[in-house]
Write a protein that binds this DNA or RNA. Sequence first.
DNA 1: CTGAAAGCGCTAACAC
DNA 2: GTGTTAGCGCTTTCAG
Lengths: 327, 327
Amino acid sequence: MATILEVAKKAGVSVATVSRVLNNRHQVREVTRSKVEQAIIALNYEPSVLGRNLRNSESRLLLVLIPSIANPFYTEIINGIEDTAIKEGYNIMLCETDSNPQREAIYFNLVRNRMADGIILMDPTINRNNVLQLADQHPIVQCSEFDKDGLISYVSINNELAAYQAVKHLIKIGRQRIALINSEEKFLYARERRAGYERAFREYGRSVNPSYMYNIKGLSFENGQQAMRMLLEQQEKPDAVFAVSDVFAIGALKEIHEAGLSVPDEIAIIGFDKISFSNMTYPTLTTIAQPMYRMGSISAEMIIAKIRGEKVESRLLEHELIIREST
Amino acid sequence: MATILEVAKKAGVSVATVSRVLNNRHQVREVTRSKVEQAIIALNYEPSVLGRNLRNSESRLLLVLIPSIANPFYTEIINGIEDTAIKEGYNIMLCETDSNPQREAIYFNLVRNRMADGIILMDPTINRNNVLQLADQHPIVQCSEFDKDGLISYVSINNELAAYQAVKHLIKIGRQRIALINSEEKFLYARERRAGYERAFREYGRSVNPSYMYNIKGLSFENGQQAMRMLLEQQEKPDAVFAVSDVFAIGALKEIHEAGLSVPDEIAIIGFDKISFSNMTYPTLTTIAQPMYRMGSISAEMIIAKIRGEKVESRLLEHELIIREST
DNA sequence: CTGAAAGCGCTAACAC
DNA sequence: GTGTTAGCGCTTTCAG
């Protein structure tokens, strides 16, 4: 494996000159440059990023932390991150926390020990103190879930408003008993979406029925299915469901099918996120579209700006109600 | 940001000693060790992996190349990779190629310039010559799709046999007109699965009907849906479909529903992979389960062994036919 | 058991 | 325009 020194010798120049052509500094004569380039080709030389990183004290790596890569909500965000990261000369290290604090600790150390230049954090279950402590020393941006105190920059959507619009849509199509399948309320998005649900009820002079509101642990299809099973066991079944994720909604839909009920005739259902599956269900799923790709690409821009020492502003992006067959 | 030198000074020892306690070398007196440890805590010191990497000429990073993170087939494999990588002190850089040769080139360079110690390659569309050239110089393992010439280590399953069993299952439940929704045959798995499909036909003395065999571009739900649409336009509709991925099968299922046909009564359908969503469709999907987690974890073990300079053997793992409601 | 010192491969002052 | 040289932060002989 050739080094810069060997290239320099072969080309009959100094390592500094080689470094200059490598980094496209324009203070190199054309003749010299081509001599160097030939030596590079002859030796099949590839500059070691290890030396460069140490010298520049940077890794050009972005750490992206998600709870689970299997959750399709994150995949499009990651696309957005990756595209802009590459454009800016960064690569991403995608890591799953499994919402496991130990893993989280390992990954946080990756930025402490300079393996990564910054973190885009998408795990909502994170320990708040640890994050704040890390944010004190290192660039960090939260995407989707965030800390309301505003100490850490974030990009997200207006969850309260989105939920409000979702439930209002169900009310407008004439539904009376609207259930809520929600996550645990330790998550900000869960609290805000419940608030939106309640606001819609208030606005139409209705009172919420706590037995129609489920907070479930976990984020999988099966969890949504379980919640729906409980809901269907009630004396008076709901005639509509607002699920705070498409994944939950799809699980719920499955359960409704198994119970032999029809969607949307007997039960209307609305999800959240607009993951690609949501268009493959039968019937297709009404949902709130989050601008996931943009959320990712803006997160990447923000974290890179922070790494460069620039000031950045948190952002709330637009969402959109997508009406399809399930309502 | 404290350096090893500052710690050494504070503890009144040399940097060598600090390095020794950092790396748990046992040739350090207990008193000295604790002096150093206190200094580390006092200074809130974190060793820089940049210096260490340069010195050791390794990055402890594994590059994982997949066509698309949105494809659920890969997500469980990645889980397997990540778990064993962490156990061995490696982290993974997950990168999407989008089956784009330019991106592929960027990522291949990551190992050439020592940003990553090795590659787990899962993109089937890769340029063969480039891979072979890279494999000549750097550790690389193929997962799932591989090169039959055996020049590069791989872990996969017996695709021909799996497809044969899938089709045999359809024959055994009495289906006469069994269609095949396949990928492009530039992929080895597509060729092998077709071979398995044909073997089952031969074994039962049937001849294949080319108009029931579709090779489609792309890997998305929509592609499966399109293929099914074509299939349903034939004078004599198929009464069963073998799709080479669950994603295709789910798209096909959607199209069958839209055509008002019932599954499995009018058309039986079998997928491939056993992604989690395959259990949430209506009806649930019969499929071939690939041992995705194990494929991932074995790939990781193999690449790490290679990095260490050990010899490794390619592996074909067991699959399993999972019969559910769609057949 | 500990320290001195060389050096991993690169970049960027600084000098000419 | 180009070369010399001093590190970036760490690990590891080699001495003692």
